[in-house]
Design a protein around this nucleic acid. Structure first.
Lengths: 358, 358
DNA sequence: GTGCCACTTTGGATCGATTCAAACATAGGT
DNA sequence: ACCTATGTTTGAATCGATCCAAAGTGGCAC
């Protein structure tokens, strides 16, 4: 007498409705997916049965299997989920992605995880039609995981030169060159560089040989861009301190302590991200060093916060939202081709850069 | 001779691997889901076959149907998707949701849509274990849609008194009371109220009868809270202008134009959201009215932006992130019970409020 | 040689829908 | 009465996996 008690909560299936209404499951299905081809009387009868039995409409789980398409794209990172809502760069990127998804009616699934084992599982079991992979730290593993799903995917801001993965990025060498050139044109000759990670999990001053061994092509390219311009005006780049941070305020400030502790301080700081540049403004202000009076600072990224900082930040702007939009397009219109797109960057001169005092 | 050509891209299924490796599909399945129970030699053979045939692991679409659980929760709103990344309130809420999801390993699916037909479809077909519904504009329709899915769901900040839906909110009457009491205690007697929508799609000054007919309980409750405190000090609340906005900068500024155009301007403005309050600070500053010198402003919500505005905003803070965390908990631990939780609010006094000049 | 147990493997049933060719009905034309 | 055209309904096949009861395989003790 068990299965008839009130507590029996077996969910109602389409087949149950069909039986109750005395029609085949094929017809019942049509009532929901193509009501116009079902005779009105029957349609009403089926709908009534559904209503009476508390049927919530065809379960997408079932439909999905048949249809194949999820109609959602996954956005993956190795950071915690809150990264998507906290980080300025990510937010602008997500806004671009959102816009493209809205336009096509696709949903967004955020895929991420606290630990890396969970992450692997989450990527393997994500119900999506494709992945957009945010390559910050640990990008290569993420890319590997995404590739194994054999779904269309595109890497954003990929720090690798692996030509076999689709990627959307910017011309880092040219962008960094713009920043450095701007400062040398202003007359600066004493520089320091705040670098993004060259490889996973280390920070500190970097030596030339470590530099050449850099795992992350993006970081290396930006440095190359900087150094190329500095060399043009005769600066010995081996004397320019390059401090590798974890792209957060704490390690940036540690880097600044190091840089300003020794010898003649720089008159200009090249930061490979706006995040570091903004942390630098804070640190300098706390040390009563004026920007751009004592020190000029140039960032990289072009996040909205840079426009309202004190002073506003001179930076190399990436077309972040556009990159997001293109990524969605690449996934949805994927034809199996691997494409690598490189977008232009733009130097935005604001208040954080000026000729050196001396 | 069609199906044998090279272009034939029928995806590889687990069954294909099984056949290729000469084992049953049951065993092939075990190789991926419980490798430890399969003899090593067989396991390797199957894995090799998978590798050779380009099999990307068991398709979650298939697994899903059997398992029933998606391991993702849907967050729905009637706004465009970018709302999640732009709006300060939403972002803090999403940060709370993210945190709770990270802790349990659940994913987040953003459900939304440009037009309302698409929205209905998206909710009906979202692959999620439950919904968190953001009730801003059009909340009731959203709730209805979510309810029809017969999945656990909880409404956040619900503007309705429908006791049959689970909801997490704050004590709007008490919170608004705190704001008004703060200002009356400072000595203010001339007020204006910037209200959230009372019903869908209208803005403008509101009359007492419209007020009573308000569809949105949250808005009504906040106004009730304001008026109760104003009455306590003998203010005739029917003389207090109440301007209904769409909770954006444009309609807020329109409201301020109206309010300041007629008769004696208020010395204090009660805004039902920080968004309106911040827009008000901007508008007043553009009009060369000083805050809190000429006008005091008190917001509602407690978004981070309020702490760094000029001047910093006095406001009634909701435990936004905590609400998000609780919502996730409510979904994941759903036992079919409908629970309504009301969280406490807190008055945060900052620089935008002071005694009136006169 | 037989019995028992542990370890593997098998194959059918199941999850919840959609699809489509074929069967069926009804009405109109000749 | 027969045929055709049109409009509905049926039911088997399919989507891609997991689960599980039952069967198979060895090894070891008696």
């Amino acid at each position: 007498m068990a299965p008839l008690t009130a507590g029996n909560r077996r969910p109602v299936r389409l087949a149950d409705i069909a039986k109750a209404a005395g029609v085949s499951h094929g017809t019942a299905s049509n009532v929901f997916s193509r009501p116009e081809i079902v005779r009105e009387e029957v349609r009403e009868r089926v709908k009534a049965a559904a209503e009476a039995m508390g049927y919530g409409g065809p379960d997408p789980k079932g439909r999905l299997l048949r249809a194949g398409k999820v109609n959602a794209i996954g956005v993956a990172t190795a950071e915690p989920l809150s990264y998507f809502f906290d980080d300025p760069f990510a937010r602008v990127m997500m806004a671009g992605i959102s816009q493209a998804c809205d336009a096509t009616g696709a949903g967004i699934s955020l895929v991420s995880a606290a630990n890396s084992e969970q992450l692997a599982w989450n990527i393997q079991s994500a119900l999506v039609d494709g992945f957009i992979v945010f390559c910050i730290e640990g990008g290569s593993r993420l890319v590997e995981l995404a590739r194994e799903r054999k779904l269309p995917f595109v890497a954003l801001d990929l720090d690798s030169e692996d030509g076999s993965v689709a990627a959307i990025g910017v011309d880092n060498i040219a962008g960094a060159g713009l920043a450095a050139r701007h400062l040398t044109d202003l007359g600066h000759r004493r520089f320091a560089v705040l670098a993004l990670p060259f490889a996973d999990g280390r920070t500190g001053l970097i030596s030339p040989e470590e530099l050449r061994a850099a795992a992350y092509a993006g970081t290396r390219d930006r440095l190359t861009g900087y150094f190329r311009e500095l060399s043009r005006v005769g600066i010995d780049t081996s004397t320019v301190p390059v401090y590798e941070t974890a792209n957060d305020a704490a390690s940036t400030k540690a880097g600044l302590e190091t840089i300003f502790a020794s010898g003649e301080p720089p008159t200009a700081i090249l930061a490979m991200s706006d995040r570091m540049a903004l942390a630098t403004l804070e640190w300098l202000s706390a040390r009563n060093l004026s920007v751009p009076g004592d020190v000029s600072v140039v960032g990289f990224d072009g996040v909205p916060e840079g426009a309202v900082s004190e002073p506003p930040l001179t930076t190399v702007a990436q077309p972040i939202a556009e990159m997001g939009r293109l990524a969605v397009k690449a996934i949805l219109e994927s034809d199996g081709q691997v494409r690598r797109q490189q977008l232009p960057v733009e130097l935005i001169v604001r208040g954080s850069s000026a000729p050196p005092a001396g």
